[in-house]
Design a protein around this nucleic acid. Structure first.
Lengths: 343, 343
DNA sequence: ATTAGCACTCAATACAGTAGAGTGCTAACA
DNA sequence: TGTTAGCACTCTACTGTATTGAGTGCTAAT
């Protein structure tokens, strides 16, 4: 069966009406609101075809039609017009960001809040990922007799630090030697290399500091990776309770449960590779997202992908708006992060 | 009217049955399950008295009775027996904590998760508060030409740090001089003093570094306070959707909204002064908590109150269990934090 | 002081009937 | 051959009514 232009218009009408109303769309509605020149009967015939082709489905006889995942997919890829985001919102993202200078962490949280406010869905955002870069430099700073602050600077300019509390005192000169030892061995390593980093070698040339090295190095590595996975933020979870699909308390609870699993959210965002990607319903790998759509985009520092953000909503999502918001957001994020780190 | 022992037993029966069932409790139920020797009619008379005294109320004629806030209050203060937490759970808190060494931050998040898991309510936890201590020492570390890491050590041993990105380069020797200047002026100050700290004086003796000082000091102060208020964690929000009182989607949404307002949660926890405190229903200052109960407790480092944790649940909360979990948790937290910082 | 008995109240449930939205099919029409 | 009007049919959602059952308050007996 071939996909005439009228079928396409009808599919579009069904999807856009359903996005707004969350109610099955009938032939009369389409005839009255969208294709005024065409009678309901004709539209019914076309709808029957569209159903055979798998683009729409019927919840039950005598109900209207709702789009299927396949229908949304076609809509996103071929039918919808891009860029529904208005100038005011675009401006808002820009302005809000200029105001929210300060530390990267704050910027990221703010981005999350803004995303959920603008889309009225739930947003997830990951902080710039150390894992995506390599170590440029490590500094160890003596805070107290047995307390050391480790500062790691990555080649993207991200700074991570962690407090290390040692079992024994450490002398300033010992710390200096250890620091340069660590820098010798570890600077320039990327994530895979660090993960399988063997510091036996270091212990052998430890000049008597082996005990301290044994404490410092694993702790250093562990804290780095931990801090990465833990830095996932979300916002606007309460928004989804406005949607009729979540008026079933069980679905709402399932959703909330997912949003409390940071590890899971991290995994989702960490898998993102494309610039902007849309996963509709069952296209999602995660069982828990089979009834959601997920729009993700990556952001960059110095043109190197370093993190990603996402919007989670129902499959009847305002795709064009959500996509352009996410896109606009990551562009701004990339720009600001790059400029912050250049300063 | 006087509060005989039987009235007390009946009130206890009503409260404990209602805590479990969330259904109004009738005289027959009490007669059968709690006071087997007494007839429903007698219990009805007593209940009528209890209602007059304001300890219980009736949702409508021909329904059973439910406890009022005042009833819960009496129950918590006078009737309930302490310490329902079992040894296994007590052990769990202890064991889990020993395993979760590592950084304070992680410990705090873990505490939050544990609290909500053990109680099946929602937990909120604040990280150790810088505001509750004073500055012991400030160190500025040069990361890059115009990037400085500020490390503040408080007299409780908490370490906070923030990355400062300056408009111009800074030389190592200038940094050293500025550092000692800042330490001279700011070390020993507590929160009120820092909040109204006037660095005009410093600018006058700036030895030509005034521009840098103008950037560094306000940023330092701001970041410190910001990092404090932002470090509030919560967990188990989805638990409340298991409760029948939140089967109304609107209530659930209101609750979620509150839990996304970190500032608000911070304020709640920051107001806590007592060791363990229970606020029941309308006793809460916050409008949004008028239908909840809030159990909070403080934790200490070196016997100085430095933060607090809380459990939020419905007014028909398992008070005795929640109280003992919270108590046990803060005790462990205090102990571990103190020992970590002593190491 | 306690209890049995009884009339009364009210929410929740079940049920039947109705309205309305929507479809599929057929036949007529351009 | 594509389009449309008409019609019978289906299914849900809603509405009004009756019924049930839990629970109370009151009264009178113990």
């Amino acid at each position: 069966m071939d996909m005439g232009n009228r079928k396409r218009l009808i599919l579009q009408a069904i999807i856009e009406d359903y996005i707004n109303s969350a109610e099955p769309v009938g032939s009369r509605t389409i005839s009255k609101k969208y294709l005024t020149g065409t009678s309901p009967a004709t539209i019914r015939n076309e709808m029957s075809d569209l159903e055979d082709m798998g683009y729409i489905e019927q919840p039950h006889t005598s109900a209207g039609r709702i789009p299927s995942d396949k229908g949304y997919r076609l809509y996103v890829d071929k039918i919808m017009k891009q860029d529904k985001i208005n100038e005011a919102q675009r401006e808002m993202i820009k302005r809000e960001f200029v105001e929210s200078l300060g530390e990267i962490d704050r910027l990221i949280k703010h981005a999350s809040k803004l995303l959920s406010q603008l889309t009225q869905y739930t947003s997830i955002v990951m902080a710039p990922q150390f894992r995506r870069t390599s170590i440029k430099q490590v500094q160890l700073l003596r805070i107290d007799r047995a307390v050391v602050l480790a500062v790691i600077v990555t080649n993207a300019g991200i700074i991570k630090n962690s407090v290390l509390r040692l079992k024994q005192d450490i002398q300033p000169d010992a710390l200096i030697r250890i620091t340069s030892m660590i820098n010798d061995k570890m600077a320039g390593l990327d994530v895979e290399e660090i993960e399988k980093f063997d510091f036996q070698d270091m212990l052998n040339n430890s000049l008597g500091h082996s005990e301290i090295i044994e404490q410092v190095v694993p702790e250093l590595i562990q804290t780095l990776f931990y801090s990465d996975t833990s830095e996932v933020y979300h916002d606007g979870v309460s928004n989804i309770l406005n949607l009729p699909e979540y008026s079933d308390i069980n679905k709402a609870r399932d959703f909330l449960n997912i949003m409390e699993e940071r590890e899971l959210l991290f995994k989702v965002l960490n898998d993102v590779r494309e610039d902007v990607s849309v996963s509709i319903g069952k296209e999602n790998k995660l069982e828990q997202f089979k009834e959601c759509s997920l729009i993700t985009a990556t952001y960059k520092i110095n043109n190197k992908v370093i993190g990603s953000v996402g919007i989670i909503g129902p499959t009847r999502m305002e795709y064009s708006k959500a996509i352009s918001v996410v896109e606009c957001m990551t562009n701004n994020l990339s720009e600001i992060l790059t400029s912050i780190l250049k300063r």
